[in-house]
Simulated assay, not measured.
Amino acid sequence: MASHAPNTVWFDHRDRLAEYFDGTARKAWIDLTSDVKVSGIRATVRAGRERMRSLLLDWLPPDLRRTRLLDAGCGTGALAIQAARRGAEVTAIDIAGGLVEIARERQPSYLGHGKIDWRVGDMLDPGLGTFAHVVAMDSLIHYPAGEIVETVELLAERCTGSIVFTFAPHTALLGAMHRVGQFFPRSNRSPALVPVAEAELRTRLSALPGWRIGRSERVVSGFYTSHALELVRR
């Protein structure tokens, strides 16, 4: 597979997301990813994200000792910490420096055999090296199908085992929300969530040489809807 760079759309989205999560959304995501009481809507999102995180972790090998794992879009670090507790050597990266700072603060003092290298930057940076597994939980939900496939293709160049990621599936509700420009938590400030047709995404991903589509599952919890896909090396 020939190496290539992400296009300008990726960089535009990336910069907008960094500004959003380090500004408007920072406090909301601190609360959402903690144990503090939140509103009913945010509670459904929290529950959905917890279910999705558990699902993606279940798709990884139970023993991750001496295994390099990329948490692509680590946010406040919950998935990275759980993977490290199973022995993984995690590179946890996010474009939002404020969220990574929170993740560092939340890291427990003892991770067993695992370790975490917290980074602020681009998940597609080839300087991060090669990984056995890549996880991208809800970090691609702002991109159309073509951009998702390009991103996964770039991640695949540096992955030897599996890639598990989520996308925003096209449903009647999400389609309507997208048409009127609404997205949790503030429609006038947050980047747009882009609903993607699962069939189209599968068709595009099936053409990725050396990879096959594995497990697939959707998590719906109130205002949270996200679909997980697994890609496995042939």
Score class of each variant (00 low, 15 high):
L70N: 08
A72V: 03
C74S: 15
G75S: 12
T76D: 13
I81A: 10
I81E: 15
Q82C: 06
A83R: 01
R85I: 03
G87L: 14
E89H: 11
T91S: 09
T91A: 09
A92K: 00
A96V: 08
G98R: 13
V100W: 14
A103V: 04
E105H: 11
E105I: 08
E105G: 10
R106H: 13
R106F: 05
P108H: 04
Y110R: 13
L111C: 05
L111M: 08
G114D: 08
W118R: 01
W118Q: 02
R119S: 04
V120E: 14
D122K: 01
D122C: 08
D122M: 05
L124G: 06
L124I: 04
L124R: 07
D125R: 07
P126I: 05
L128A: 11
A132G: 13
V134I: 14
V134W: 02
V135M: 10
D138K: 08
S139V: 04
Y143A: 15
G146I: 01
E147Q: 14
V152Q: 03
V152N: 03
V152F: 03
E153R: 02
E153W: 00
E153M: 01
E157D: 13
C159T: 15
T160D: 15
G161A: 05
I163M: 02
V164Y: 03
F165D: 02
T166P: 08
H170F: 10
H170M: 12
H170E: 12
A172W: 12
A172K: 12
A172Y: 09
A176T: 10
M177A: 13
M177L: 14
M177V: 00
H178D: 13
R179G: 06
V180H: 12
G181D: 13
Q182M: 13
F183I: 07
F184D: 12
P185I: 06
P191G: 10
A192Q: 07
V194H: 00
V196C: 06
V196K: 00
A199F: 12
T203M: 04
R204G: 04
L205E: 11
A207W: 00
A207N: 07
A207G: 05
L208P: 02
P209V: 10
G210V: 04
G210D: 12
W211L: 04
R212I: 11
G214P: 07
S216K: 09
